[in-house]
């Protein structure tokens, strides 16, 4: 049985198509990585699951959490799920925390909302949570304001908030992108550790393949509002079948190889990402793809079972 089941999600804002048929499932406690360039629709996928889309957004398709349909929930009922059963961690820990509220109170708030705890009880729980995410003097640090903390500490506060109610699913949208490289690894490790400890599933969104590869069991690659490839992490890294995934892998590996950078031969994906919603008809990677043909004028369907690919000209497979 799957925890999360997303079926044929289509989203448009102001007549711009941003998600074009997203379907995937997550098993309980599964760690799924969602990667893609900015504008590929990965953050919107998360916001859709949270039900936090702007009002202008037009949505079709289905999102089910443990067999409960979410897309038709009233705001009141949806708000009871948020923070309690699904939690979300955002990219910018500076702006995502209320600058005028002490961080302990911000962590405790989610407990007061969902578990009806008193101020006192929620405060002491918040301190315990802060300790769990690595603060060395949580009782004092709970009284700090966000601007008094470092970027890494702020993101730890966000993580403490997210795990407070032991949710079934945590959505982490680029949780380490705004952090220093040295801090990134710590925060990622903490996230992985805590989700395992509480048995909650993690949807980790990033544009950085390395981040996702270290934490997740399975990876989905998004491009142009479509999941172009998904599969178990090692298989996808070892034998990518979609031309876009291959190009993405090539660029990440290039960074490790500093020699090449020195000679100006950093591998890049030819062309530029189309503006969000301006993706071509048919296969979304058309125009940048080296294997393009007539067939790509129509959208390829997802092929394969464990390892699914949307491409007419998969690598390593006889088409």
């Amino acid at each position: 049985m799957s925890l999360l089941e997303v079926t044929d999600l289509r989203l448009s804002i102001d007549d711009t198509d941003l998600l074009r048929g997203i379907s995937f499932q997550m098993a309980p406690t599964e760690r799924l990585g969602l990667i893609g360039e900015s504008g590929s629709g990965k953050s919107l996928t998360a916001l859709t699951i949270m039900g936090l889309l702007p009002q202008r957004a037009r949505l079709s398709g289905s999102v089910r959490l443990a067999d409960q349909e979410l897309t038709n929930l009233t705001e009141r009922r949806y708000s009871r799920l948020r923070g309690d059963r699904i939690a979300m961690i955002f990219q910018e820990p500076m702006t995502s925390l209320n600058p005028l509220m002490r961080v302990g109170k911000q962590v405790g708030e989610v407990l007061r909302i969902h578990q009806n705890l008193s101020h006192k009880a929620s405060a002491s729980q918040a301190i315990a949570l802060l300790e769990r995410v690595g603060f060395d003097a949580p009782a004092q640090q709970a009284r700090a304001f966000p601007h008094q903390l470092s970027g890494g500490q702020r993101q730890r506060v966000m993580i403490a908030t997210a795990i407070a109610c032991k949710p079934d699913l945590i959505l982490a949208d680029e949780p380490t992108t705004a952090l220093d490289v040295t801090v990134q690894a710590q925060v990622l490790a903490l996230l992985g550790e805590l989700t395992a400890e509480h048995g909650c599933a993690l949807l980790l969104i990033s544009h950085d393949l390395a981040v996702v590869a270290n934490v997740c069991e399975r990876i989905q690659v998004m491009y142009g509002g479509v999941i172009v490839e998904s599969g178990p992490t090692d298989e996808l890294l070892r034998a990518p079948q979609h031309p876009y995934t291959r190009a993405l892998l090539a660029t990440s590996r290039g960074i490790e190889d500093l020699d090449r950078e020195l000679f100006g031969q950093l591998p890049t994906i030819p062309g530029v990402v189309a503006e969000a919603g301006r993706f071509p008809q048919g296969c979304t990677f058309r125009g940048r793809c080296e294997r393009e043909s007539e067939r790509c004028l129509s959208m390829p369907s997802a092929q394969g079972t464990q390892h699914q690919v949307r491409c007419w000209h998969r690598y390593g497979v006889e088409n």
Binding site: L52, F90, T95, N98, V110
Partner: peptide
């Protein structure tokens, strides 16, 4: 503001989020 979205993500309804945060 991002922190208002965070407040919503914690389970506050839009008006609650605006009033409290």
């Amino acid at each position: 503001a991002d922190f208002l979205r965070t407040a919503r993500a914690k389970g506050l309804r839009p008006n609650q989020a605006l009033v409290r945060h």
